[in-house]
Amino acid sequence: MLSKAEGSAGSRRALTGSEREVLRRIDPGTRALVIASVMLVLVLCSLLPWVRGAAGWEVLMGQADPALKIGLLPRLFAINSTIVGIGLSALALITRRWIFAFLAGLAGVVVTFEGVIAIWSRQTSGAEGPSIGLLLAVACMAVLAVQWMRIVWSRS
C-alpha cells in the first residue's frame, strides 16, 4: 500500500510528464493553412524557369543545360529549399512538435539568405539572370521562415 506522500509524488511525476508533453507540442492554427499553401507554391516553383529555360527541378537534379552555367549556389538553394521548405515543414506540420517547428524556422531563415545569395550570384555572373521561379521560391522560403518563427515565438 502506498502512503499519501508516495502517491502524491507519483501524481506529480505524471503531471510533470504531461506538462512536458504539452510544452513540446505546437498548435499552428490558421498558420497551418498558410504554411501548406506556401509549400504548394514552392513545389510549383520547381516547374517554373529559374534560369532562362531551366526549370527548378532541372536545377535541383543537375540536369540543366551546361551552357547556362548555373553554378553551385542556385543548385544548393534548390536542394536546401526542398529539404527545409517541403520536407522539414511537412514534418513539423504532421508531428506538431516544437523542435521541428524551431528547426524549420531557423533553417528557413538560413535557406532564405542562401536564396538571396543565389539570386545575387546570377545577377553578377554576367550570364543570364534569375527567372521568376527562383525569385518566387526565395519569397516562399522567406514566408515559411517568418510563419515558423512566429509559431515558435508564440510558445516562448
Rank of each mutant, 00 (worst) to 15 (best):
C45Y: 01
W148Y: 13
A36C: 02
A127R: 05
R97A: 12
M141L: 12
L15N: 12
A145Q: 03
R97M: 12
C140Y: 00
R12G: 00
G115I: 00
T30P: 08
I86M: 07
T30V: 14
V109I: 15
W153F: 14
A67C: 04
T112H: 04
G87Y: 10
I70H: 05
L44F: 13
V152Q: 02
A107L: 12
P66W: 07
R52Q: 14
M149V: 03
L2W: 10
S18D: 12
I117L: 15
V152A: 08
S121T: 14
V116K: 03
G87N: 08
V109G: 00
G129P: 10
S89T: 11
W148D: 01
R97E: 13
E6D: 10
K69T: 11
L44V: 14
A145W: 03
W148S: 00
M149Y: 04
V138G: 00
G17Y: 06
T82G: 15
G87L: 04
G62H: 10
T16K: 14
I35C: 03
S81C: 13
L68Y: 10
S3R: 04
V109K: 02
Q63R: 14
W153K: 10
L15G: 12
S121V: 06
A101V: 02
A127Q: 09
L42W: 00
L48T: 04
V146C: 05
R25W: 05
G105M: 05
W153P: 00
R122H: 05
V38I: 14
A55K: 13
S3T: 14
K4G: 00
M61E: 09
G115Q: 02
W153V: 10
A101L: 00
